[in-house]
């Protein structure tokens, strides 16, 4: 899968939001609140093709958690992203 074009990650104080800014998503007026982990992953894979395993590996490397926990977290996150329509196959 890959991230959809037109979304821009913005930092707001200590928080992160993904904002529909591009022409591709104009008029959507969409904004998705993200925690630090989600923002880290988005930034790492923006514009690239990726899968669950690749994201989980990033989490293992960054936060030193087990692959099992990382995969569980990534699966939940990808469901959120999918529902929000910010990624595509």
């Amino acid at each position: 899968m890959k991230t959809k074009k037109g979304y821009r990650l913005r930092q707001l104080g200590k928080e992160y939001i993904l904002v529909a800014e591009g022409l591709e998503v104009m008029g959507a007026n969409q904004m998705i609140s993200m925690n630090e982990t989600a923002a880290f992953l988005w930034e790492a894979v923006e514009g690239k093709t990726f899968d669950t395993e690749a994201l989980a590996k990033l989490l293992v490397d960054e936060y030193g958690i087990s692959m099992e926990v990382a995969e569980k977290d990534v699966t939940a996150l990808l469901q959120t992203w999918n529902k929000a329509g910010v990624i595509e196959d």
Binding site: V19, M26, N29, M31
Partner: peptide
Amino acid sequence: YAAMYVSFSGYRF
């Protein structure tokens, strides 16, 4: 931020 965002003009692209 979101309430403000829809209340001012500009081309974000």
